[in-house]
Amino acid sequence: MGVQGDRIFAAIEQRGFPDPWSAFGECLSWESAYAVQLKQVIDQARKGPDEQLLQTVSDLFEKKTANLIDAGKLLADALAEYDQNGMWQMLDERAARLDIDDVSERWARGLVEHPFPIALLSLQFNWRYMKEHGVRAFYEMTSRYVDDLNANTRRWADAWAAEAETGVIDRVTTVECDLASEEAPMHCDICKKTITALLYLDR
């Protein structure tokens, strides 16, 4: 076991993660990072009026929004490029040949032990989805997910604006929107690793 996985990891060792998927994954990791920072600063701002903290919240919402716009553009450009160069057919063929158990064994080696290995389970879900529905369909779904993250950010920003204006604290929206953002890397930084396995399968 681990034959395909070893080959993929050897290619990663030589080449790293390929763009645009590496950059896309980084964007979705930042989605979580910005949410953590926002929650921290909002908690501080709720303790009393502070113009600097309020400006920091505003700046973080702007950065979070811009980051998701960048992610959406990277994904849209990749979809268009792969439509033009016929990559989807090759990726679907490789997805069909990918041995999920074999590759999972190699990916699992570096994980810290936990009874619910969320990163590994996310990888396995992604590969199964690609096998069943096609690789392009997976990224169409991912594009909708990024749109939903944008809507989540707008909802959070609107709730914070209302809170700042009225003084009525809305902790529930903060909790819900923060959680949605913190989950993002387990889907979309993970999907960087998902497609890398296909791109490097025959290297």
Rank of each mutant, 00 (worst) to 15 (best):
M1W: 00
M1D: 05
M1K: 06
M1C: 07
G2S: 02
V3I: 12
V3H: 06
Q4S: 06
G5S: 06
R7C: 07
I8K: 08
E13K: 14
E13T: 11
E13H: 11
E13L: 07
G16I: 08
F17N: 10
D19M: 05
W21K: 02
S22D: 09
S22E: 06
A23M: 05
A23T: 13
A23D: 12
F24W: 15
G25Y: 12
C27L: 03
C27S: 08
S29A: 08
S32F: 07
A33G: 10
A35I: 03
A35Q: 04
V36T: 09
Q37W: 07
K39R: 14
Q40V: 05
V41N: 04
V41G: 04
I42C: 01
A45M: 09
K47R: 14
G48W: 15
P49S: 06
P49H: 12
P49E: 14
P49R: 15
P49L: 10
Q52L: 14
L53Y: 06
L54P: 00
L54C: 10
T56G: 01
V57A: 03
E62G: 00
K63Q: 15
K63W: 09
L68Y: 01
D70Y: 06
D70H: 11
L74R: 07
L74K: 07
L74Q: 05
A76H: 03
D77N: 13
D77H: 09
A78F: 01
E81R: 15
Y82M: 12
D83W: 05
D83T: 05
N85M: 05
Q89S: 09
M90P: 02
L91G: 01
D92F: 01
E93S: 11
L98Y: 03
V103D: 11
V103M: 04
S104T: 10
S104C: 02
E105R: 03
E105K: 02
W107T: 00
W107I: 04
R109P: 01
L111F: 14
E113V: 14
E113P: 00
H114I: 07
H114P: 00
H114S: 11
P115N: 05
P115M: 09
F116A: 02
A119N: 10
L120E: 09
L121E: 12
L121D: 07
S122C: 09
F125H: 10
F125K: 12
R128P: 03
H133N: 15
G134K: 05
G134R: 07
F138H: 12
E140P: 02
E140Q: 13
S143A: 13
R144V: 09
V146A: 06
L149E: 10
L149G: 00
T153E: 05
T153P: 00
A157N: 13
A159E: 04
A162C: 04
A164H: 11
A164G: 02
T166N: 07
G167Y: 12
V168G: 00
I169K: 12
I169W: 06
R171D: 13
R171W: 09
V172E: 14
T173E: 11
T173R: 02
T174E: 15
T174A: 13
E176W: 13
C177N: 05
A180R: 15
E183G: 00
E183V: 12
A184L: 09
C188K: 06
C188W: 14
D189Y: 14
D189S: 13
I190T: 13
T194I: 05
T196C: 11
Y200G: 07
Y200S: 02
L201V: 03
D202T: 15
R203T: 04
